[in-house]
Simulated assay, not measured.
Amino acid sequence: MTADQGALVELSWALPANARRYPVVLQRSPVAKGEQPITALGQGATTTRVAGLDPGAGYCFLVGVPLRISEQTTVAWSKPACIRGAKARRQ
């Protein structure tokens, strides 16, 4: 679920019970040059606010739970939540 307030977007989601003990990450696309596409959120997080967005641009967001952190990290990603007509890129 999203609440679009122009330069600020509020996101919320549900986590499966067994995922609540893991850290959560948020991926945003697109990002401006020099910005990080992935933001670490707290363990079991189910909401976040993303500020500093261009009110005229479309964005897609993915929520992920890292299942294994190593050279080949494995992340379980949500389906994309897109706003303002943005389309998720195929992975």
Rank of each mutant, 00 (worst) to 15 (best):
T2Q: 10
A3E: 14
A3V: 07
A3M: 04
A3T: 14
D4P: 06
D4L: 02
Q5M: 13
Q5T: 07
G6E: 09
L8G: 00
E10I: 04
E10H: 11
E10Y: 02
L11V: 07
L11F: 09
S12F: 01
L15C: 12
L15Y: 06
L15M: 08
P16M: 02
P16C: 01
A17D: 15
N18W: 10
N18G: 01
R20H: 09
R20V: 11
R21I: 12
Y22P: 00
Y22S: 15
P23S: 14
P23Y: 09
V24S: 13
V25M: 11
R28V: 07
S29D: 14
S29F: 03
S29P: 00
P30K: 01
P30Y: 03
A32F: 05
A32T: 05
K33D: 13
E35F: 00
Q36N: 06
Q36E: 06
P37V: 07
P37F: 04
P37H: 03
I38Y: 02
L41H: 06
L41R: 03
G42H: 00
Q43W: 00
G44S: 11
A45L: 04
T46N: 09
T47L: 07
T47I: 03
T48V: 12
V50S: 11
L53H: 07
P55L: 12
G56I: 06
G58F: 13
F61T: 06
F61Q: 08
L62W: 15
G64M: 09
G64C: 09
G64Y: 13
G64F: 13
V65Q: 11
V65K: 07
V65A: 09
P66E: 04
L67E: 14
I69S: 10
T74C: 02
V75H: 07
V75Q: 05
W77I: 06
S78E: 08
S78F: 05
S78M: 08
S78K: 01
K79S: 13
K79G: 15
P80R: 08
A81H: 10
A81I: 09
I83P: 03
R84A: 05
A86R: 08
A86I: 07
K87Y: 05
R89M: 06
R89D: 03
R90Y: 10
